[in-house]
Design a binder for these strands. Structure first.
Lengths: 344, 344
DNA sequence: TTGTACGCGTTATCAT
DNA sequence: ATGATAACGCGTACAA
């Protein structure tokens, strides 16, 4: 059995003061109450010598604050290991939270199981939540929000007034497709991700695709719109099906880089050369994008910054009790080889 | 202000019973004490109607258990977003912990800052720790272990008796290099990762490389041993330098797939064809490995299973109070295109 | 079968 | 400037 960690009582005993004084010295350092420097030093030394760490449970029980933020992923496709994007966000979140001395509990929602956010918040495990992949049907979030639990969404929740951080997916997708249009392509396909009933990001990217084409007076051929499932395999299959069409597209907008990698492979296997026979634009600008063959033209999404901003918003909400204003981060078209040059 | 979450007192009131009864019904369901079915139902209904969730802090304070495991990464190169491997492990950990109703706190050690493991464990934030990238110098772990805190390492800690889960990096690397030898290569280079003072995985992979060559009577040419830094860019640079040699290698063992992707790019840029001019074997078998061009021959490391096993070991240790026995997971050589065929 | 009372470690209030 | 005391919400030994 572990020798129980020292308590403030132990520190008090060693420093020959009361627990109250220990508490003052350790927390209220800048409060109105003064403590004699000698006493202060004795307490500090005692705490250090004992390796004292205040008990989280007791502190939390007393203060009614957990000092912990929850990061919850809903859609399985958004989960930690499922795609290469999420970890970058997590990294950003951790850097901000760590700096603020706030802990991070990570949890994944499992379909059919009780909403983890509710348990986390109601049980006092966390003071606030960063949520991604939530669907409108998850009204647990609404209730928590109504009750004043600070919540920040990564990605918008359709028809919700929860504060979020996101990119303008419609505009970004439009930018990607317009790049292809500007290169002279007219028959442009789209591989977007299958929305888990309604992932607004996937839907918005598709919308951006449609908007771009329509703004140039091109009618969208629905046979050119395909669904993938966030990974390479599904991208491979989508592209394979696309290239089985009698009239092949000359350009493809793929709504995520990992899927694009699978698509690239399919083209290669089929004998379609990228970018000469087929121009491809991805989405995300993952670290691998510059290194795949051919290097991937894509939309840069500031993944780590998304995490940073979300965490900052949450920290602010916890401090102020206010509701942060939603943030839309900028994307950027990164032109590399896969989109090729001006079409003859 | 949030309307405070309901307490067991509220449940008791609504069900017209005492708090004790509520506690019995909710926790001790299978205890010796019996509760009348009618009462039980009243309590359950009341809890459900109120959306009651036991307060984590109070429960933890009382039980002296946090119900939380900490996942701590030390080396920055091992951090969540830094490479594509860690998220897969995290995913495995989460799946096991979630099923056991145990929460997960994720934290990254920052050089120069106090060891997060100590604060996490001593402060009672967590009951146990899963640790990766720890260096022998971090003796906080030793002390915690000596005090009976359940700890599992992912990757071995040199000269430590902490239980770990890992793969046999020496054997795996040897297998990779022997594959190249079997294909008829003799001048084989190695790009391993720069150990953060002492990452045993990196060192072991290098050792496996040396062992393989020496077992065939080949003297290692130190000019063929290069260091990368876990990412594509460093892999690119390492390969570029390698190919600047007067006598180029015909095969390269790269100690991680992401680095291999960078190396692949460098070869392409320089005009060296893989696998015809240069055979490459990677390590990890990331999801992207089959999709890069050419598809990557590599060592499969069961990333998700590493997480699963580590979590299971931790759960067992928390339950038994025992010390789990270390686990070494199997690797496998996955032959794809990048290593080419038998050399003329 | 159910209720009463205590303590887990902290911090805040109130005396001294 | 410092110390005694109460309360946070829960679980359980004990009494009824």
């Amino acid at each position: 059995m572990p020798p129980r960690s020292p308590t403030s009582r132990d520190v008090a005993r060693l420093a020959s003061v009361s627990r109250t004084t220990v508490s003052y010295v350790l927390n209220n350092s800048d409060s109105g109450i003064a403590v004699s420097p000698a006493t202060r030093k004795r307490v500090l030394d005692a705490a250090r010598d004992l390796g004292y760490h205040p008990n989280a449970a007791a502190r939390s029980l007393r203060s009614q604050k957990a000092g912990v933020v929850g990061l919850v992923t809903y859609a399985s496709t958004m989960q930690m290991g499922a795609n290469a994007f999420m970890p970058l966000v997590l990294d950003g979140v951790m850097s901000v939270l760590g700096g603020a001395g706030v802990k991070l509990i990570v949890e994944a929602a499992i379909p059919g199981q009780p909403d983890p956010c509710v348990g986390l918040a109601r049980g006092g495990h966390v003071d606030a939540l960063i949520v991604t992949g939530a669907r409108p049907a998850d009204n647990g979030l609404r209730v928590l929000h109504a009750d004043g639990v600070p919540i920040v969404l990564w990605g918008m929740l359709a028809g919700s007034d929860l504060p979020f951080v996101d990119v303008d997916n419609v505009a970004a997708a439009r930018m990607a497709v317009e790049h292809l249009l500007d290169l002279g392509h007219e028959r442009i396909a789209c591989i977007t991700n299958a929305p888990p009933s309604n992932n607004s990001a996937a839907a918005d990217r598709l919308l951006g695709y449609r908007t771009a084409l329509e703004s140039r007076g091109i009618v969208v051929d629905e046979v050119l719109v395909r669904r993938a499932n966030y990974d390479e395999v599904s991208g491979f299959e989508a592209m394979r099906d696309l290239l089985a069409q009698t009239v092949r597209p000359t350009g493809v907008f793929v709504a995520s880089d990992e899927v694009a990698l699978g698509a690239l492979k399919a083209a290669r296997v089929i004998g379609v050369t990228v970018p000469d026979d087929l121009a491809i634009v991805g989405f995300d600008d993952l670290p691998i994008a510059p290194f795949v063959e051919p290097s991937l033209t894509t939309i840069r999404v500031p993944a780590r910054e998304i995490g940073i901003v979300a965490a900052r918003m949450i920290i602010a909400m916890m401090a102020n009790g206010s509701i942060a204003t939603s943030t839309t981060l900028a994307t950027e078209l990164i032109v590399r080889e896969s989109s090729g040059t001006l079409r003859a």
